[in-house]
Simulated scan of single mutants.
Amino acid sequence: MATVSVIILARNEEHNIHDCIESVQFADEVLVIDDFSTDDTAKIAEEMGARVVQHAMNGDWGAQQTFGIEQAKSDWILFLDADERISEPLAKEIQAIVVNEPNKAYWIQRRNKFHHNHATHGVLRPDYVLRLMPKEGSYVEGYVHPAIITPYPTEKLQHPMYHYTYDNWHQYFNKFNNYTTLSAEKYRDNGKSCSFIKDIILRPTWAFIKVYFLQGGILDGKMGFILSVNHYFYTMTKYVKFYYLLKSKGKL
C-alpha cells in the first residue's frame, strides 16, 4: 500500500498546529519542520502524534520544503501550511488517489476563510496550489513564493482545502512587511530593474483595478475594499523597497 507523509513548515504556530494536524489524521506520517519555535508548537505537534524535526529556514522556503521531502518516510508528499485544513471529502479523495494513480501530481483548490468575516473574490478568490505528489524526484525552489518541481503530469483534485488567512490585522501587516522585503530582495538577486513611474506609480494602480473590479473584490463589501487597497500598497511597498535597494542599498 502507498503511504503519505504530510509536511508542515511551522514557526510559532501553537494557535494553528492542533487543528491542522487533526485534519490529516488519515496520513501515515505527519512531519513538522519546526523553525525553532519559541512557543508550544513542537510540544503540541508531538502530542498530536507528529514527528518534529527542528531546522532553521533562514528565509528560504524552497530549501526548507526540500529538506522536508528528504526527511519524509512515505511514498507520497502532501504539503500543508499550519493555517490550512484538509476537508473530509478531500481526505477521502487523497486516500483513493495514492492507491490508484501512482505517477501523477495534483493541484488542490484552496478556499480562503476568516473567522468572523467573509471575502471570496479579489485577492482572496480561490486558487489552485500544487501540494500532492510522489516523493521520488520532487523538490522545491524559491524563497518567497516557492515552486514545486516534480517530474509527474499534473491534474486537479475535485474537493477543496481551507485556508484560515489571518487572525488579526497585526498578523496581517507583519506578513505584509516581511513578504514585501523578501520580494524586493528576490528582484534584486535576480537582476531585475525598477522604474519609478512604471513600477511605483502605475503598477500598484493596475493591481488595485485588477483585484477590485476585474476579479470581483467589489462584491465583498467593506472587506473587499480594504483588501484591494492593501493590495495596492503591498504592490507599491515591495517596489519602493526594491527601488531603494538598487539606489542606496535600502538606506534612506
Rank of each mutant, 00 (worst) to 15 (best):
L78V: 01
D127C: 11
F79W: 03
R125D: 06
A147V: 14
R110P: 00
P151R: 03
A50R: 03
A42N: 06
H55M: 07
I108F: 02
A27L: 11
Q64W: 01
P146H: 09
F26N: 06
R131K: 12
F26Y: 14
G137Y: 01
Q65Y: 14
L124W: 11
L31K: 03
S138H: 00
K104L: 14
A96L: 12
T66S: 14
P146G: 07
W76C: 03
F26D: 08
I149D: 02
A56S: 00
F114A: 11
R110A: 11
A82S: 13
H118Y: 15
M57I: 05
S138R: 01
R110K: 09
V98H: 14
A147L: 13
A45F: 06
K113L: 15
D28C: 03
G62D: 06
T120M: 10
P153S: 10
T38A: 13
H115Y: 14
I149Y: 07
E93K: 06
E29S: 09
E46M: 12
G62N: 04
L132I: 13
E29V: 08
A96M: 10
V32N: 04
K92G: 04
Q95C: 08
D34C: 10
E46N: 07
N100R: 15
I86D: 02
T66A: 05
A42Q: 06
G142A: 01
E141G: 01
T154R: 09
D39G: 12
V30D: 06
L31P: 07
I77Q: 00
Q54G: 11
Y106F: 15
T154H: 02
E84G: 08
I33H: 05
D60C: 04
D127H: 12
D83Q: 02
V129Q: 13
L78P: 00
S87E: 08
S37R: 07
N58C: 08
N100T: 15
I149H: 13
P126T: 10
A27V: 10
R85G: 02
H145A: 13
I108P: 05
Y152D: 04
F114G: 15
I44S: 01
K92I: 07
G49W: 02
L132R: 06
D40C: 05
W107H: 12
P126K: 11
R110C: 10
P102L: 12
A96T: 15
E136T: 14
G68R: 05
A50P: 04
L90H: 05
E88I: 10
Q109R: 15
F114Q: 13
A82H: 00
V32S: 07
Q109D: 06
T150Y: 02
P146Q: 09
